[in-house]
Amino acid sequence: MVEILKGNLAQLSLIDILRMLSFGNRTGRLDIHQGAKSGEIYLQRGGLVHAVTGAKIGETAVYTLMGWLEGDFSFTPNIDAPEESIHITTEQILLEASRQAEQWEDIKEVISSTDAVFNISPSGSTNTVSLKPIEWQVLAQVNGQRSVIEIAEILDLHEFEVAKIVFSLTTAGLLHEVVDAIMMNREMVDEAFFEQLTSMFIEVMGPLGSMIIEDEIRLIGEEKGTFPQNKAAELVERISLEIRDSAKRAQFQKQMVAILRG
């Protein structure tokens, strides 16, 4: 299986990937992984024919996958779909996905990811708030432990719908985000790593080095203060590609690999 397109959703959104593959009339399977979750989208000569993630299938699966703000993807060409579960045109799907993507941009300002956990705000809202039944249902599930995606699963709702509701309840002052459950459990790189990385990189690239590092951290979809250990090598690899001199690049990589391998 030759993967011809690989990357992270933090750098290239799913809608852009699908547009590219559709425009190129590609046939094959797009695999998406986000932690323990995964999804597959099949294309046949540029048209979306089948999608699946967890128990979701067809258009619903595509829209669910569109909601993943981060994760790895890879496209393997020339794989036929095992079945056809998408019965609307690719243009319709991409149009609806674009609409959702625009809303996601606003939602992302408040909800860092669908794994984010919210709790009832102790101060509450200062204004009178009227809630629709569906908003009550979501609010009733918020307990400071359940993530957005878990609430969607409990209520059997699309995570995009739940995220939209959580977004509106948060902006109304009823909810606030608690520490991300994934962030709490993941191993992070320490400050000394960034000090060594920055100092060695600046030695090669000059003062622009620290800006390049900041840019790459952002492109990976992470923040310096909470940068995960399992992406440290990826960061080193990416920034080292900025060093044009191959001997200097290898020297920098050698020093950083020694640090990464402890």
Binding site: N230, A233, E234, Q253, K254, L260
Partner: peptide
């Protein structure tokens, strides 16, 4: 396997 770490390691060795 951490593919990035593998790539870095291989690059160091092939450069050598």
């Amino acid at each position: 396997i951490d593919i990035s770490l593998l790539r870095l390691t291989i690059n160091i060795i092939t450069s050598r």
